[in-house]
Design a protein around this nucleic acid. Structure first.
Length: 512
RNA sequence: GGCUGGGUAGCUCAGCCGGUUAGAGCACGGCACUCAUAAUGCCGGGGUCGCGGGUUCGAGUCCCGCCCCAGCUACCA
């Protein structure tokens, strides 16, 4: 049993969870669950980034202390993840004392391992008093802050700790060359490679004006103690997580699941920090895409609104998970629409899998008193196994994590089963006792197909997969059944129950 | 502006190193069936493969030019 440590990017505690946050968690959860069924010893880490100027300002605006504010945000995030069935083993928060101590330890470790990694430098930037932060040229409109156009920007100089990122350009290039799997999908790797070609600039590691954060362990030459800047506070969470009480997070991580917008931080800055600290690098970074809504991108600055709880309530959390992972390519962008959601649900879940389960269990009850007969393996079994091999290849990390391809392969097995019924016509076979062996062979094959679907869909729809497994009378749980076990499954003697439909057809309500 | 990747049926996309009548799913139309959630299966209509040149016996598939779209072009977590 090999160890598999998967992480999500920690979410910034500046607002409530939205569709963009959910996509990443759902995708990573499917990967984590799949690896449990592949036989790995999985540790799944998610959490929150709770420090920084924006959080402090938002808390102040709300009239509460920063800690109190982030406590509330964290509660809403964890409640959402519970609703969606996210199976994380650890929820880390950067405001936790264990994180503070570990960040401090990491910085000291860098000072010890690479004495010249940090140095002091004066930084002069355009400072907006309204925002209480420095502005980059790109943030300016006609020389003024876009958010506070009535105020003039001040040229402010401060001394900070800087990290010698530029010194790692060659080592990073070498790492990318030696480990082509380090960053996937491939088009993201190309972007980073071109960035490395341009050469890297040093980055600041501490800030004077930010109070809400981890104190940088060494004062600057004036004696002033500054606050650790975001790179050195947030990115290390993957490593500091192991020092939380009860954690078994094994460093290095197997894969960091992150959004394409922060690929650079995870494949350049973070690895350079680890190199400076003399620590091993994560094996892989997977950059997923974004969901758009009405043509607009979901992000923290969301002008786009979609009530997550409403979307989940519409057809249930399992259907929501399925729709997102099936219809949004996990290596690129995709659009959310209520029409597509209902179309995919109706076609593939209600009419496809749900009806397949319904007609199969009905026939086993009607023709075999509900007990699955014995039956030799069929051409459908063989064809399914080829599809499941493809599904596994999309889940085991060997080609990144194109989850939509895994689901596409599973969907093919549903179509195959429905076609097999049509071809074999069990209701005709049942009329003549002479056809009994053939009837049993067909029904046994169908139950095997459904059982495998339950097992392979468990990472994507944990609730519905279990309901299907139960309806088939499978032993234990679908989630506890390894993929390899499913491939060789024999369902003889299982007792099926038809029960209610797995995926009831949606009410013909009008979508908003 | 530069770099990268794209523009193929109403929609989402496959089409590898050029080669018979350009494919899939969804949607749409017709037929069949009744085990099933008015579900399923079969058949069918539908595309000047972004535009214009070129190479070739032959080009969505290679070359050149142009138009359009997306991503990246680092201190926002």
């Amino acid at each position: 049993m090999s160890s598999f440590f998967i992480t999500c990017a920690i979410d910034y505690a500046n607002g409530d969870p939205h569709l963009g946050h959910a996509l990443e968690k759902i995708g990573a959860d499917a990967i984590a669950r799949a690896h449990r069924q592949l036989g790995d010893d999985v540790w799944f880490l998610i959490g929150m980034d709770e420090h920084g100027q924006k959080v402090a300002q938002t808390a102040e605006a709300a009239g509460v202390a920063p800690q109190q504010f982030v406590d509330g945000v964290a509660e809403r995030f964890t409640a959402m993840w519970a609703t969606l069935g996210i199976s994380h083993d650890q929820f880390m928060r950067t405001s936790h004392a264990a994180h503070h101590a570990a960040v401090t330890a990491l910085l000291e470790r860098i000072f010890a391992e690479t004495p010249d990694a940090f140095y002091e430098r004066s930084y002069t930037g355009e400072y907006c008093v309204g925002c209480e932060s420095f502005k980059q040229a790109a943030d300016l409109h006609e020389g003024r802050c876009a958010l506070h156009p009535t105020r003039t920007l001040e040229a402010v100089t401060e001394r900070n700790w800087f990290f010698r990122l530029s010194a790692y350009t060659e080592r990073l290039k070498a790492h990318f060359a030696a480990h082509p799997e380090f960053l996937q999908p491939a088009h993201r790797r190309n972007e980073i490679l071109s960035l490395l070609e341009q050469g890297l600039e040093d980055i600041s590691a501490s800030r004077a004006r930010i109070a809400w954060g981890v104190p940088f362990p060494r004062p600057i030459s004036t004696g002033e103690t500054q606050t650790t800047y975001v790179w050195f506070d947030a990115l290390p969470n993957y490593w500091t997580a192991q020092f939380f009480p009860g954690s078994r997070a094994p460093w290095p991580a197997s894969v960091h699941v992150v959004g394409k917008d922060i690929t650079r931080f995870h494949t350049v800055i973070w690895p350079a920090m680890l190199m400076a600290a003399g620590l091993p690098l994560p094996a892989q970074v997977w950059a997923h895409g974004f969901i758009t809504l009405g043509g607009e991108r979901f992000s923290k600055s969301a002008g786009v609104k979609l009530e997550l709880s409403e979307a989940i309530a519409r057809l249930g959390p399992d259907a929501f998970r399925y729709y997102l992972l099936r219809d949004i390519p996990f290596d690129g962008d995709g659009a959310f629409s209520w029409e597509r959601f209902e179309a995919v649900y109706t076609a593939e879940l209600a009419n496809g899998l749900g009806n397949l389960a319904s007609r199969t269990t009905a026939m086993v009850e009607k023709y075999c008193d509900g007990v699955v007969p014995a039956g030799a393996r069929t051409a459908e079994d063989a064809a399914d196994l080829a599809d499941y091999a493809e599904a596994r290849a999309a889940l085991d990390g060997s080609n990144g994590y194109p989850l939509h391809e895994a689901l596409a392969a599973i969907v093919r097995t549903i179509g195959r089963a429905n076609q097999a019924i049509q071809d074999a016509k069990p209701w005709v076979l049942a009329k003549d006792p002479a056809n009994r062996p053939e009837l049993e062979r067909v029904l046994a094959s169908l139950v095997r197909q459904l059982a495998r679907q339950a097992v392979y869909l468990a990472p994507f729809m944990p609730g519905k997969a279990e309901a299907l497994w139960t309806a088939l009378g499978g032993p234990g749980t679908a989630a506890a059944t390894a993929f390899a076990t499913a491939d060789a499954l024999d369902c003889t003697g299982w007792r099926v129950t038809k029960g209610e439909g797995l995926f009831p057809r949606p009410e013909p309500t009008t979508a908003p």
